[in-house]
Write a protein that binds this DNA or RNA. Structure first.
Lengths: 253, 253
DNA sequence: CGATAACTTGATGTGACTCAACTTAAGTGG
DNA sequence: CCACTTAAGTTGAGTCACATCAAGTTATCG
């Protein structure tokens, strides 16, 4: 894990970046990369940090290198709703707009690759190939957000919980590749119950009840608050109310 | 209303297009416009038409010229959830992907400006200024979808209904400018109760009850199933659970 | 004008939120 | 390193908003 703090380019060249080949940066020419190296630097934030507050005129954008960032919207009544989760290689920040409608907050300890927003905006305009990649990424994101909206709306809490567990299990396969064959049976959800509940549009109490129900019926085993073992993938899929194909499609974004 | 059916370029030049200056097309050079003219044509579809089915390999993209298109996702159990509504000047179709995850369906009679997808994709790559505009539009759309997701999740049905009515009232001001001062008091919602319910994540029954409640408490007057008069804007805003500023922000997209 | 669909209204059951107590985990200072 | 404190998570009881099923009413269209 990167412990870099507030230093410019401690990550070395972008070519050493842990998430480089999964970001839009990867399509840049050597000349473009050199320019990116100049305007970017890594920085770490502890869990709970507000990276950018709702409505604030953000002057930074960048990529998640490590950790999870939550994108949330706070209502007048104090309710917070998480409208998105950003994972390593995901882009964060609101390009081409004064301020962000949402707040960016570190859901875990995170390491970011930060870039000056106006600088990166200029960079994009000067490098259409990268901007093209950014458009494709945003189109994928748009589909994913809509897909998730359809899930949180038309499904029961149990279905959402099962879907989330499945998606995180797929995600951890892709990321850690820790132990090959059995990777999918172990799920790490690095979020607090409150954050998961806010993301699923429910409460920590209801969420807890559903997780315990899944455990009682031997679909999962609770290792600890953030770690689960999948005992029956088929049962989990059944509880999700989605087909396996749909789930994989959701997980792939 | 345009009655054009399946004819190539009956709209004449793009410069005669009803929605031209609100679309991404408007930033194109004269040369670009000429090219757009060649690859585009208008076509009308009656209400209920499937413009593109879910999962189908769509070969068309374009702009809505008139009417409302619903973007929906059908679940395994037959439930349909509307994840987006597209209005005149909005772009439809899934660029840079084989198939669309959602179905596009005419919620009213619609007129579209259709373009061959591969052709338009090539056009975008050849015209970075237009692609840049497309990116900006998609970034706005992303914010709007997330904002709407936060509303449908954290709010009661009454709040969603009030929000929808407010948003549609603002939208009709912008579009029709029918009678200036009193424009905002008359709201036209050109969707069926079922479509509205699917969009709000509720049922036609619950929706109807809420609308009737608003009418009984003199917040609105029901002119007919699709037409309402706003009697008390302040009360409507109060029922929405949002601040006026937030509502206007939502409506502006 | 009859038939079908769209919408409204009523009665009822239930999933999930709320409030509250309890248990476990995490962090802090002596 | 352990007692203490505080936060995070779980479990329980009660309530309510909303979905469901069903019947009635109003539009829409051939």
């Amino acid at each position: 894990m990167n412990k870099t703090a507030e230093a410019t380019c401690l990550c070395g060249k972008c070519s050493n970046c842990a998430v480089f080949n999964r970001t839009v940066c990867s399509v840049g020419s050597p000349e473009a990369l050199a320019q990116l190296n100049r305007i970017s630097h890594q920085r770490s934030y502890p869990r709970g940090s507000i990276i950018q507050a709702q409505g604030e005129a953000g002057d930074m954008v960048g990529n998640i290198v490590d950790g999870v960032v939550k994108l949330s919207s706070a209502s007048v009544n104090g309710t917070e709703h998480i409208v998105g989760l950003l994972f390593p290689s995901d882009f964060f920040g609101r390009l081409f707009a004064e301020e962000s409608r949402f707040s960016y907050e570190a859901a875990t300890d995170v390491t970011l690759c930060l870039m000056n927003k106006p600088g990166f905006e200029r960079f994009l305009i000067e490098h259409p190939a990268v901007e093209h990649e950014m458009l494709k990424a945003k189109l994928d994101e748009l589909d994913a957000v809509r897909e998730w909206a359809a899930i949180t709306n038309g499904h029961t809490t149990m279905q959402r919980v099962a879907t989330l567990l499945y998606v995180f299990s797929r995600r951890s396969i892709n990321q850690h590749l820790d132990d090959g064959a059995q990777a999918s049976s172990s799920v790490h959800v690095p979020l607090s119950r409150r954050d998961i509940a806010d993301y699923l549009g429910t409460t920590p109490e209801t969420l807890s009840r559903n997780i315990q129900t899944l455990a009682r019926s031997k679909v999962i085993r609770i290792i600890n608050a953030k770690q689960f073992q999948l005992l029956s993938m088929n049962e989990l899929i059944r509880h999700s109310g989605e087909s396996r194909a749909d789930l994989d499609r959701i997980a792939s974004v």
